[in-house]
Design a protein around this nucleic acid. Structure first.
Lengths: 234, 234
DNA sequence: CGCCCTGTTGATACGATTCAAATATCGTGG
DNA sequence: CCACGATATTTGAATCGTATCAACAGGGCG
């Protein structure tokens, strides 16, 4: 069990017009005139690893865009079981449920140091009113979330432990330049794949011994992607 | 392995204004004037059990509303593994991906005799243009699909075989009046829960022997819901 | 009637969980 | 900077659960 570090820091007001990842974010298609409607500022924040961003059942007034870092969404069952249902990284939008419901279905927690932009739901609503471009962009975001959830089911919740771990490592290394990627605790890895911490650890250890991955420092994984792919493709 | 029966039959043009489930469907919020824009007719169809409605990778031009019956969405992995990622029943909308992509990510198949309404994607687009009520309704549908996917992960892909089966039976019996519900093959039950056919069968047989469920005729299940709930709630 | 498909059951092997202990790592204060 | 305690990770051994392979029963259909 972990005890939660809790550090979030406001790092300024976003300048959405000149955002470095603007072409990939929700407001990509906005026109100059639209930005003038942004009377309320868009805050940027940094979260330390382990920080809770929002809590399942808590009031939902905000959407978030990931500028950098990694965020997990965790869902709980009545009996206390918990399962990580999604991971969000650069350019991902989460908390979309705030558009429909008034509480979040998941708990969102930073896994790495994470920069987020905070989009108040009424700002998004105001901007989207009569703006079918933004509506379409929002739907594309729902679509992305749903594809991701489906992938979670087929890739990370099906088959043997080893396959799941391998598919996940491929997912994690995918967007990185080299095959080097930053992992997180074995406990979270287990919660992600529906395995116990021990099984997650054992499987990682075995992949290391067999040379499919290296771990130069803790939670810094270097993957031999070609060989990993061979393990899960026929 | 099954071999696909293939019967789909056109059963008329829907009268959306007077639809018996209108208050629950996508067009619930439309006004009279909107219906006048519906130049292209909305077809109604019946599918026999086993019929494929659309195929993963195939061209996506249509959204479907379930009027009655049961539909599965199946996703495939490169190695041939398949997994059922969602079930759709009365009033559910599926094929939303057609709004964003030009191919479907899943294969859709009728599990029971199923009545569907076919909504051409350009009709939906035309109606939604400038109609923020319909946009909102569409987002609510994305939201519902996503909640369902998340539930699939935590309830049907996590924990022991027995718990999964029990949670699923509760899900299946939920909307029914009594606790009587119509199941489908053990093979599909396995594909749904990430289990083998044999394990699905064994678990069902054991639940029967222990009196948690009865099966008066094949695939007609009567659940003792209170006792089933005790099995999965703490 | 015999065949095919589905569901059930059995035996066995394998894999994952569990509980426990040893080891490594991190952060903190001396 | 090092030593310490707290926290994560790794490893071990035993148990339990699920997959696998195989055989058989029953129902529907040609």
């Amino acid at each position: 069990m972990k005890h939660v570090a809790l550090a979030e820091a406001w790092t300024g007001v976003a300048d959405c017009r000149h955002c470095t990842i603007r072409n990939a974010v929700l407001f990509a298609g906005l026109k100059e005139a639209d930005f003038d409607q942004l009377h309320r500022p868009i805050d940027q924040l940094v979260y330390a690893p382990g920080t809770e961003i929002y809590s399942a059942g808590g009031p939902a007034h905000t959407l978030y865009t990931v500028r950098s870092g990694l965020v997990k969404l965790t869902q709980y069952l009545p009996d206390g079981t918990q399962r990580i249902v999604r991971l969000l990284r650069k350019t991902d939008l989460f908390g979309l449920e705030a558009l429909i419901d008034d509480s979040y279905p998941h708990t969102a927690t930073a896994l790495h140091a994470t920069e987020l932009c905070r989009l108040p739901v009424d700002v998004v609503r105001a901007l989207s009113h009569g703006n079918s471009g933004l509506y379409h962009e929002l739907m594309a975001r729902w679509h992305k979330a749903l594809s991701s959830a489906d992938r979670w089911i087929t890739e990370f919740s099906t088959g043997a432990a080893r396959e799941r771990v391998v598919r996940f490592l491929i997912w994690l290394a995918e967007p990185e330049e080299g095959a080097r990627c930053e992992l997180f605790s074995r406990e979270d890895l287990g919660a992600l794949l529906g395995l116990t911490t021990e099984t997650a650890s054992r499987t990682m250890a075995e992949l290391k011994r067999q040379g499919f991955i290296r771990e130069p420092k803790p939670n810094q994984i270097v993957c031999d992607l070609p060989r990993l792919r061979q393990l899960v493709e026929p």
